[in-house]
Design a protein around this nucleic acid. Structure first.
Length: 703
DNA sequence: CTAGGGTTAG
């Protein structure tokens, strides 16, 4: 209220304007307009044509030639300036106008609002001598858009007359800021509703996560005989998509189809997304193919649809095809395509798409850049992600979260904290994901004190809900530092009940420190809470094995068998020139197998010279239970590295992905290998990235 | 396209 001390007073005087006088006013004005139009119609159409193409300077040149431009032409130009964020030019013209009508005032007010100047807009509004219902609605909308709900309400209540559009503005304003209850009250209060009112309310409910209520409101709407429009149906299909209401959506789709409904791009796109989210990718494709028009949004929906169904190759094919068809991808398309690169862990493909984004001038788009950061870090190239991040003009919460999480996954704990500092300086408020990233960073870099500090910060921020993931991460941090008892106490003192994830973090730490006593308790909790968590069995079994408690080892194995728990088979892969080369332990199926084994054998000789002694414990009962008879030297990650060594340029970075954890013996061997071959070897295992370089690993040997 | 209210991809 502080900004607008005069509101209540001015509203009182304003509200005395009767709707009757407003009507008279606009009628008489229409005559003037039409008269004026006749004299300058040729100029007016030229200017209009220029403005349509945002050629402001040319429009202005024509305008300047007119000796006495009428209100209509002035207003046209003012609106043109406003649309192109040139409020000052618009205002200059506005003040220069010999006479102003209600439309020019309204245009100017809207322009100020669109360019972020609420004060100026309200100033103008107050200066008006005659206001139409549009003036009021524009101003109400302004307050709503700026989150000034009290002012919007006050102004709305003061309106001398309200039409449906005015009411709809209130409903929409509330919906857009998540005030769904207020929106619904307003909706119910409306003296009469049109299809737009219903549509907005349906869409609003859906966007607030109340998709089922949205669908039942749609039923109500049909019950009172209101016919849906394309907008309504789009929102309805989106609601069906959001709650995977396959049957409901299919029914409606069929019904519309049978009634000969003409599907426009909006409905088709929402239908596609509906089918994609319901895992009906064929139907999604069918809608796409059957639609007569196709635009970038529909193509993007198809790219995303394949991505949602895990068909990332297909998604990228669609991305390629759309460009072949001459459709120019936009930010959203790039976001989806890059997301599929993540799904494929295909750094090369990601780079290609990055190059295309640059060519299309989208390299400073915050959404594209955020996706690039995630893509690069997930595909194993944090440096490129950092580079994108550092060059961004505008960074939002997602940008900061992406870079912090990226650093965390790559073991860059200090870097993550550095970015957190910068984030605070930039004034972006952290959220639950930021803190999860920071805690992961501390855990992966074994930073106990920093971790405690971060956790404390999190707890002191009342706006962020501390979730189980945060607790699990904190347990991880304490556990990796060997504070097993403390971690156990911490879990017992949690304000919310720990789940299996939290106890599993403790169990992992017990494995690291061979603490059977705490491990037994932790394992009990994990298995009680989630009897199908195979990780818990594996950890426990390995713990018993390293303590040579073979009876317990076989007891666990029997238990697993009885409960039908199968350990995942270890696999590692390298993506090279778009193809993925997958290796299992002892694999000899790859065409280059002979060369790979030769390479590894010659390397193992050198490894011994560097003092490497194979750790047979991992051979007998390693974390992934790769076949015992297979020598340690041929674990899947080593085969993948061998492949990369014989297929890539000397000195280049090697990137390997693995589905399980790297075994301890491989970890020591790969460290030395990185030194011997003079290569950086980056391995992403099931929980993080390891950067092997010069005989060392970024994980500090705890992972 | 001289002014106010709704829809699709992310």
């Amino acid at each position: 209220m502080a900004c607008f001390p005069a509101l209540s007073r001015s509203l009182k005087s304003i509200s005395s304007v009767s709707s009757i006088s407003l009507k008279k006013f606009s009628n008489s004005f229409m005559i003037i307009t039409n008269y004026a139009k006749m004299g300058t119609s040729s100029h007016s159409s030229t200017i209009s044509e220029y403005l349509r193409n945002d050629r402001l300077d040319e429009a202005r040149r024509v305008f300047d030639k007119i000796t006495s431009p009428d209100v209509y032409i002035y207003t046209m130009l003012i609106s043109g300036y406003c649309r192109n964020n040139k409020t000052n030019e618009a205002l200059n013209l506005f003040y220069r106008m010999p006479t102003r009508d209600v439309v020019s005032w309204n245009s100017m007010i809207k322009g100020c609002l669109d360019n972020g100047d609420l004060n100026k807009a309200y100033d103008l509004f107050n200066q008006m001598s005659e206001r139409s219902v549009v003036s009021w609605t524009t101003m109400v909308n302004g307050f709503l858009q700026f989150g000034r709900f009290e002012l919007a309400e006050e102004l709305f209540e003061c309106m001398p007359s309200r039409d449906i559009a005015a009411w709809n503005s209130m409903v929409l304003g509330y919906c857009r800021s998540g005030r769904i209850k207020d929106a619904f009250n307003m909706f119910k209060r409306m003296p009469s509703k049109d299809v737009i009112s219903w549509t907005m309310m349906i869409g609003g409910l859906d966007q607030c996560g109340k998709s089922d209520e949205a669908l039942s409101l749609f039923r109500d709407m049909r019950g009172v005989g209101v016919d849906p429009t394309s907008s309504t149906l789009s929102s309805v299909f989106t609601a069906c998509a959001n709650i995977s209401a396959l049957e409901r959506g299919v029914q409606l789709h069929g019904h519309l189809f049978k009634s000969g409904y003409v599907f426009d791009a909006f409905i088709s796109t929402s239908l596609m997304t509906f089918y994609a989210k319901c895992k009906q990718i064929e139907s999604c494709l069918k809608v796409f193919q059957e639609n007569l028009v196709s635009n970038v949004v529909m193509w993007t929906a198809l790219v995303t649809g394949y991505g949602l169904n895990g068909m990332h190759e297909e998604a990228l094919d669609v991305f390629k095809n759309m460009m072949k068809e001459g459709i120019v991808p936009n930010q959203s398309t790039f976001v989806s395509a890059l997301n599929s690169c993540c799904g494929l862990e295909a750094l090369d493909r990601g780079k290609e798409i990055h190059t295309k984004a640059i060519k299309l001038g989208l390299f400073l788009d915050v959404f594209v850049d955020n996706s690039l950061i995630v893509m690069y870090s997930k595909c194993g190239n944090l440096d490129y992600g950092v580079n994108v991040f550092n060059n961004m003009n505008e960074k939002n919460l997602v940008s900061w979260n992406s870079i912090i999480v990226g650093c965390a996954q790559h073991g860059g704990g200090m870097l993550a904290l550095k970015y957190f500092d910068q984030m605070a300086q930039s004034g972006v408020q952290p959220d639950a994901i930021t803190f999860l990233g920071l805690l992961t960073a501390c855990s992966h870099s074994r930073m106990l004190d920093k971790g405690k500090y971060v956790f404390d910060l999190l707890n002191r921020d009342p706006s962020i809900e501390v979730r189980l993931e945060h607790y699990a991460s904190m347990v991880d941090i304490m556990g990796r530092s060997g504070q097993l008892k403390e971690a156990e106490e911490f879990i017992k003192n949690m304000p919310i009940k720990a789940n299996s994830m939290v106890w599993l973090a403790l169990l992992s730490a017990c494995k690291l420190y061979s603490n059977l006593e705490v491990a037994t308790k932790a394992a009990q909790y994990v298995l009680d809470l989630d009897p199908h968590d195979s990780a818990a069995y594996v950890l426990l079994s390995n713990l018993y094995a390293s303590a040579c408690r073979w009876n317990d080892v076989s007891r666990i194995r029997v238990m697993m068998k009885g409960r039908g728990i199968i350990k995942q088979r270890g696999a590692s892969w390298v993506t090279l020139k778009g193809s993925k080369h997958v290796f299992n332990s002892g694999d000899i199926s790859h065409p280059l197998s002979r060369k790979i084994y030769q390479k590894l054998d010659s390397l193992s000789g050198k490894l011994k010279e560097f003092g490497y002694v194979p750790d047979q414990r991992f051979d007998l009962h390693d974390v992934e239970n790769e076949q015992k008879e297979v020598s340690l030297f041929y674990h899947s990650e080593r085969l993948a590295i061998g492949f990369a060594l014989v297929s890539t340029v000397e000195g280049s970075t090697i990137r390997v992905m693995k589905n399980l954890r790297v075994c301890g013996d491989c970890h020591s061997a790969i460290k030395l290998m990185s030194k011997i071959v003079g290569r950086t070897i980056i391995i992403r295992d099931s929980s993080r990235f390891h950067h092997f370089k010069d005989g060392d690993c970024s994980c500090g040997n705890y992972w």
